Amino acid sequence: MSLIVKIKKQLDNFMLSVDMELTDEVVSVIGMSGSGKSMTLKCIAGIETPDSGFISLNGRVLYDSKKRINLQPGKRRVGYLFQDYALFPTMTVMENICIAMGQRNEEKVKGWLKRYGLEGMAYTYPNHLSGGQRQRVAMLRMLAAKPECILLDEPFSALDEHVKRSMESELMEMLTDFHNPVVFVSHNRDEVYRLAERIGSMESGVLSTVRDKKDFFMRPMSVEQALLVGCNNISEVKWQDKHHLLAVEWDSVFEVTDEQLEQTAMSMDGISHIGVFPQDIIISAGKTKTALAYADKNIIRIKDYKMIEELKSWEVLCKLNNDSIIYASLPRHTEANMLNKNINDELYIKNFYLLG
């Protein structure tokens, strides 16, 4: 089972360029709004037509610009779950699902509805359903058509926060026996991490290399990837030599190892920024063992700080001498020590990332 997408399409602000291949797995495309994520799904589904390229699903060619092949959406066997669910408003739940099946099998549909908490709603119209109920119906309708590939376009964006997690679980349960490609588009990093096996970022229409999700989150390779995975401390850099660079915004020199350079797979000229996760900053009151362990490492000097209480941690906004801000994160158990002492005027950096 495989989906191969190699397409280009000129849009208003950029050229959409996608090159990916997936098997029976969930691959996520994450990116900012307007980056080309939804357009990619529409091209796969046949709703939009690329300018050039090739799309195949399980060996069937869906689109080939050179051979002038462009199958209609109804012939592609691709399931598409839209952000607004796109249920037919003048049809009941039963009719919405049966039309996707191509036959009327009320017994089977009622069995599905009972399994997913929709018992008694077979003859209800979509406008009388809650957001979560409409999504369940849309997912059932999509699966009833027996697609060979599923495209999920921000499927939880219209749901209230307290409903999202249960919908995620239900979606994954529905997909348990679906051994075909799934492409999941989102801008929410938490959803992406929970649902996807591999991830690629869409940046101004260009899809990055699709990587294992842990590698993607733990080793961002561009400024936009860093922002997408929660690395909000980013500075432009100026190289001093092969092993030292100046983080311009923080006015601090960082030592770069050969191993770090090898991991980036970029030349020094291609590295323009540095990124530091808030949790990779050691912030200490006094010369603790942890502080001493990193005292000879990369250091950022601060002149002031402000602590903000979060649900599971403390966020520390540190102001530098040039009035730049850098964010650190502290677990809740440090609360008593940190509030009763003045923190050091130095931040110790455990880890940082070189970004292109």
Rank of each mutant, 00 (worst) to 15 (best):
I30E: 04
L317H: 08
E168L: 15
S52Q: 03
G111P: 07
R198D: 01
N340F: 15
S208D: 03
E21A: 08
P181A: 07
V316T: 04
L330A: 14
K146W: 02
V185A: 04
M174E: 04
I55P: 02
L151M: 06
P89N: 14
D241Y: 00
N105D: 14
V316N: 04
L330R: 04
E48S: 14
R115T: 11
R77A: 07
N321G: 13
E262H: 15
Y123E: 08
C318W: 09
P50H: 03
L227N: 06
C231M: 06
N105E: 13
A100K: 06
S329E: 14
V93P: 00
P147Y: 03
A122I: 01
V316F: 04
M218Q: 06
Y353D: 01
S169T: 11
C318A: 07
N127E: 14
M172V: 07
N127Q: 15
S329Q: 15
R77W: 00
L151P: 05
Q135M: 11
A86F: 05
I55S: 01
I349S: 03
I325S: 12
N321V: 10
I97F: 02
T90E: 07
Q10K: 11
G36P: 05
L143N: 02
M101S: 06
L339W: 13
V182L: 00
L22C: 14
A138N: 05
M1V: 08
S28H: 08
N105G: 11
D251W: 02
D64G: 12
G59V: 07
D296E: 10
S56H: 03
K108R: 15
E148T: 11
N105T: 04
G205E: 11
G275D: 07
E224R: 06
T124I: 15
A293N: 09
L354Q: 00
N127L: 13
V163Y: 07
L140T: 07
F216T: 08
M167Y: 13
M1S: 13
E310K: 12
L81M: 05
D19E: 10
N342V: 09
R115H: 13
M32E: 13
